[in-house]
């Protein structure tokens, strides 16, 4: 397994994506709970720089006992990453698109060691493209 040191652990937060470059490939890092997830910075919708987008809770609706809308708020239990090109939104814990479960962000393996974040380099760009067809609209 080819691990590459990409940044310090302190550089990665839950509030925004930290984008690093590994062998010419951009990878976004975001903290989810106690761990870090890593996604390739390409939206599976139309290839926008998804990791440049905002991280926030999805909007949820509160209903009263008569099922009337009481209020809207940001969900506290879930965080999403929103592609700045078209607004496609992905669960930062899984990379799954919240409006189309057929598509998901490409995840990279990541580990923390002695205050440093490492990611793996999962093969060539050609190998990436080979998997893209089934992951695209």
């Amino acid at each position: 397994m080819d691990w590459r040191a990409v940044c310090r652990c302190d550089d990665v937060t839950a509030e925004a994506v930290t984008v690093v470059e590994v062998d010419g490939v951009e990878v976004g890092l975001v903290r989810v709970g106690g761990t870090i997830t890593a996604f390739e910075n390409i939206c599976p919708h139309q290839a926008g720089p998804v990791c440049d987008g905002e991280v926030m809770g999805p909007v949820e609706v509160l209903l009263d006992s008569d099922r009337r809308m009481l209020d809207e708020r940001f969900a506290a239990h879930r965080r999403i990453l929103i592609c700045p090109w078209h607004g496609y939104s992905f669960d930062v814990a899984t990379g799954e698109c919240i409006t189309d479960r057929k598509i998901h962000l490409r995840r990279w393996k990541v580990r923390e060691d002695d205050g440093v974040v490492y990611v793996t380099v999962p093969g060539t760009r050609a190998a990436h493209r080979g998997q893209e067809g089934s992951n695209a609209t």
């Binding site: 290839a47 926008g48 720089p49 440049d52 493209r129």
Partner: peptide, 15 residues
């Protein structure tokens, strides 16, 4: 701010 169109030329070439 980062360049929001930076992925595009590579995708154009790859396609």
């Amino acid at each position: 701010p980062r360049d929001l169109l930076r992925n595009a030329p590579r995708l154009v070439r790859e396609r």
